[in-house]
Design a protein around this nucleic acid. Structure first.
Length: 923
DNA sequence: CGAGTCACG
DNA sequence: ACGTACGTGACTCGA
């Protein structure tokens, strides 16, 4: 990995920090204005955290004359005196930098930009990436392939990265040095440099873009308009001086060994702490205070901070694009071309492929073409005609290679391509390497889109889809209309990138011991989900519609009543802001209303429930909310998602979203169809079998997460309860309340149930007290009682956290990992979340693994037994099937056996099944 | 586009 | 002193 050098322009950043707080300066108790100090140090540390440089330096201007004043006495002459607060801040900042072990560099007669220019130029491009942190645009002239600029964050936004390429594009110039000429024409008000009259940024850029340089421009001065020519004639003598003034010096004699002198090293804590204490920088003290871990010196080597050993790749920039490579992307135009391609594919052990389609909905999308990558930078594009009969016959030419078991297929989100190709009767066999899923296992919390992966792992920026079909939203373009040359580059690039990513990611999977999880679980699941999504679910839109009409009437009625009670005729009840104001300001139903983090009144159900007796409007609002939710999220929306082609609803199961390993479902989300609430569960009645000859079968794991808790913690008491087949919540109640099992009250059981769930989530006394509406002391007692009973559970939870601390991750029973870098955070809120994740992720994730295994096995049996019945929905611990009635007994047997046999735990896995003419009945 | 709310396991 | 149970997706409002 290249070394990375971060160079900071001290005064520019200090000024910026100072003025950022100008309206509300920070002061310590002695009255010292610490805005500039804090702002600058924070920006510096943030940059170090973000860029993770191996080398760093801060450049200061030296007060007094510089060589620029010698050649131009008016240089910066108009500048106002430096504010007193900044003057006093600078020595303190220098002390701080020293304590942080960040080198300071200054040189008499020169400015910070000259120092940075010199170092950036001197740093060997093969050895160093250089980041210049400054808000000053002039640094643009220094940009190179290995030198980028970081402009500090402006309020709200992240800091802005500028690369040489982007910079040149912005000014439409060939190389960054040309910016000197632009500046010389443009001038610089803040430096008191007068440019050419009537020439600003835009004109200067245009002229340099056009003529290449000032010299050439002046030679062609007659081509300018008369008035412009006059302005240039007048400025002619000034230009050489301007050029000198705006040119950043790159060859100061600094007597500096970059590699040795600027190396990042840990702060000198003993010097740093007193300084931070005096300044009263509490957050920084927390961060750099002498915590135990710091004393043990757990720094990642070469880092200023203690960072988790396993962290996302460090940020990259200066991304390469297609133009930086000599790629061999070809179009297969004729049948002969395709035959040649197919021949090449047959010779491959593996190839990457991608489909381009007319849309993102795989059911209705039509193929526009296919791309295949055979090796790095070598790919083919096969265009597919609009006529679907012709299309199919061309695509069919590839059926054999796709179906070949011995040829591996690589792709990004293969499920989509698999579905599209299924429309053309193409089956995909052989090992599938899905780069998205591989990365999901490697970094479950990260994003996994191709652009991101390319950037991180290949240092490459793909052609943006917007270049092809325009921004979505307005005048949505179509893949069909894209220029053939361009679509070839785009599609081949995608396949090529998938191919290249596979090589990187496969090695990483092996390194992490994740290949087995990938090939046993995630890879076979691709095909299963493909079929489930395609199967779809039948919706009884008619009954939904009728139910919706009834609810709508109630809603209108409620709205009227609520507005009347509120005395606000145009109240929007769906606006929490308006609602809160009505309830708490106007009706004053309470004075101690809870506020949200944006200081609005909190009007969620939990809060409103507290005031239900204060005013009759409250219960009406809750009722309104409930009905509105059902209507807008389900009743009115689901029928719109019925596919015209199939008459069914086709959700999309996302296999790479949930960081614990679960699936998620969207478009629509079929995993949150109401069931708890009486009104809501009516909606389940609209999910029906595909025909009269079918039934819905729902099979769900009983208490799978608690069983996993028992299994993983090896808690004898809990294991025993499950083995005896006891009602686990009642059994828990009996034990923690010390009553016989048959005397457990409803209330006790309910409390125990909440406590059981609490364990799975990584409980806190506060959380439990909130849920149960009891005091924290009571909650604490309850938890103590719980741990007293289930001693193994307590030990297991502690062990999870300890493991996460030690290894940086926790694991499921199938070896799925979740990395928890925050487990060592100094921020206890952040750390607390990581600790609860350490407890919850192995449980939730193992349950996800188990049902995935079950789905794969059920699917295989359905195929091998050639059943007409279909698996259609998964809801985390439940599978729903559209069962062909004559197969009912067989399907029930297969499903139960596959689900219960998906893993062998210390407790039996139990599955409950139900059948019915709709999803509600089946439950 | 974020915040608030609420549906599910 | 501070904020607190885990994981999702969809809708609505309003800057």
């Amino acid at each position: 990995m290249k070394k990375r050098l971060l160079l900071l322009d001290a005064y520019a950043l200090i000024y910026r920090a100072y003025y950022a707080f100008i309206n509300r300066p920070m002061r310590n108790s002695k009255g010292l204005n610490t805005s500039a100090i804090y702002g600058f140090i924070r920006a510096t540390l943030d940059a170090i955290k973000k860029f993770e440089p191996t080398h760093v330096a801060v450049a200061f201007d030296v007060s007094g004359k510089t060589f620029r004043n010698d050649i131009y006495p008016e240089y910066k002459a108009q500048r106002e005196e430096t504010p007193e607060d900044i003057k006093t801040s600078v020595p303190i900042i220098k002390n701080l930098l020293e304590a942080f072990n960040i080198p300071i560099i200054e040189k008499e007669g020169f400015e910070a930009d000259d120092i940075i220019g010199t170092i950036a130029t001197k740093a060997n491009p093969d050895e160093f990436e250089v980041i210049m942190m400054t808000p000053d645009k002039d640094y643009g002239q220094l940009l190179r392939d290995n030198v980028i600029m970081a402009k500090p964050a402006r309020s709200g936004n992240d800091m802005e990265i500028v690369t040489a390429k982007e910079f040149c594009e912005k000014y439409d110039i060939q190389k960054p040095e040309q910016f000197i000429d632009i500046l010389a024409l443009w001038g610089d008000v803040s430096d008191n440099i007068k440019g050419v009259n009537k020439v600003g940024e835009k004109t200067a850029a245009k002229l340099i873009s056009q003529y290449g340089s000032i010299d050439n421009l002046l030679q062609n001065i007659d081509k300018l308009s008369p008035s412009q020519k006059k302005n240039f004639e007048e400025a002619r003598d000034l230009i050489p001086l301007n050029k000198k003034l705006v040119s950043i010096v790159t060859d100061i004699d600094l007597k500096l060994d970059i590699d040795n002198d600027l190396k990042v090293s840990p702060p000198k804590t003993e010097e740093l702490i007193p300084l931070l204490e005096e300044l009263e920088f509490r957050t920084l003290l927390k961060e750099f205070g002498a915590s135990k871990r710091k004393e043990q010196g757990q720094y990642v080597q070469g880092s200023l901070f203690d960072m988790p050993a396993n962290k996302p790749e460090r940020p990259t920039f200066n991304l390469k694009t297609i133009d930086d490579f000599d790629v061999d992307y070809r179009i297969a135009k004729s049948r002969d071309d395709r035959a040649k391609l197919i021949d090449e594919l047959k010779q491959c052990q593996e190839f990457a492929f991608d489909t381009e389609t007319t849309g993102l909905d795989p059911i209705s999308a039509e193929l526009v073409g296919l791309s295949f990558a055979i090796k790095t930078n070598k790919a083919w594009w096969v265009s597919v005609p609009k006529n679907q009969d012709e299309a199919k016959s061309i695509v069919q030419e590839f059926a054999e290679v796709f179906a070949n078991h011995n040829i591996g297929k690589i792709g990004q989100n293969i499920k989509f391509d698999m579905q599209v190709l299924l429309n053309y009767d193409i089956e995909i066999k052989g090992k599938l390497f899905d780069t998205m899923l591989a990365h999901y296992l490697l970094e479950p919390d990260a994003r996994h889109n191709l652009d991101y992966l390319s950037e991180i792992y290949l240092n490459y920026k793909p052609i943006s889809i917007e270049e092809l079909i325009g921004k979505k939203g307005k005048s949505q373009g179509n893949m069909r209309n894209v220029d053939p040359e361009l679509i070839t580059r785009y599609a081949c690039e995608d396949a090529d990138l998938a191919y290249q990513l596979k090589q990187v990611l496969f090695e990483k999977l092996q390194g992490q011991g994740l290949t087995e999880l990938y090939f046993k679980l995630e890879e076979p699941l691709i095909e299963v989900l493909t079929h489930m999504e395609r199967n779809g679910v039948t919706l009884d839109s008619q009954s939904l519609k009728e139910y919706g009409e009834m609810l709508s009437k109630q809603l209108v009625e409620l709205e009227k009543e609520i507005r009347n009670m509120a005395g606000v005729p145009d109240l929007n009840i769906s606006s929490p802001k308006q609602l809160g104001e009505v309830l708490f300001d106007k009706l004053k139903i309470a004075t101690d209303a809870k506020l949200t983090k944006t200081k609005q009144y909190s009007t969620n159900e939990e809060e409103l429930q507290k005031y239900i007796d204060k005013h009759p409007i409250v219960s009406k609002i809750l009722e309104f909310r409930g009905i509105k939710k059902l209507l807008s999220t389900y009743i009115e929306t689901l029928p719109l998602l019925v596919n015209k082609k199939t008459g069914k609803i086709h959700t999309s199961f996302n296999q790479a979203v949930a960081s614990t390993g679960r699936l998620s479902s969207n478009n629509p989300n079929l995993q949150n169809i109401p069931i708890r609430d009486e009104n809501g569960r009516e909606i389940r009645k609209a999910f029906i079998p595909s025909s009269e000859e079918h039934l819905l079968l729902s099979a769900d794991y009983s208490q799978i997460e608690l069983r996993l808790m028992a299994h993983m913690s090896n808690d004898q008491i809990m294991l025993e309860a499950f083995e005896k087949g006891e009602d686990i919540h009642a059994a828990t109640a009996a034990k923690i309340f010390k009553v016989p099992l048959n005397e457990v009250t409803r209330e006790q059981r309910s409390k125990a149930k909440t406590a059981n769930f609490g364990m799975i989530y990584g409980i806190s006394a506060f959380g439990l007290s909130q849920r149960l509406g009891i005091s924290r002391t009571e909650a604490k007692e309850l938890i103590d009682g719980y741990f007293d009973t289930y001693k193994g559970v307590k030990a297991y939870m502690d062990q999870c956290v300890a493991e996460a601390r030690e290894r940086g991750f926790v694991e499921t029973i199938f070896g799925r990992k979740r990395f928890l870098p925050d487990i060592n955070s100094n921020n206890q809120v952040v750390r607390g979340l990581a600790e609860r994740n350490a407890i919850n992720a192995p449980i939730q994730g193992s349950a996800a693994d188990i049902i995935k295994m079950a789905m794969i096995n059920v699917h295989r049996e359905i195929i091998s037994r050639k059943l007409k019945s279909k698996m259609i929905i998964q809801v985390h611990d439940e599978l729903v099937f559209d069962v062909y009635k004559p197969e009912l007994d067989e399907v029930k047997e297969v499903v139960k056996r596959c689900m219960e046999g998906a893993a062998s735990l210390k407790v039996p896995l139990e599955v409950d099944m139900g059948i019915g003419n709709n999803w509600l009945e089946a439950h």
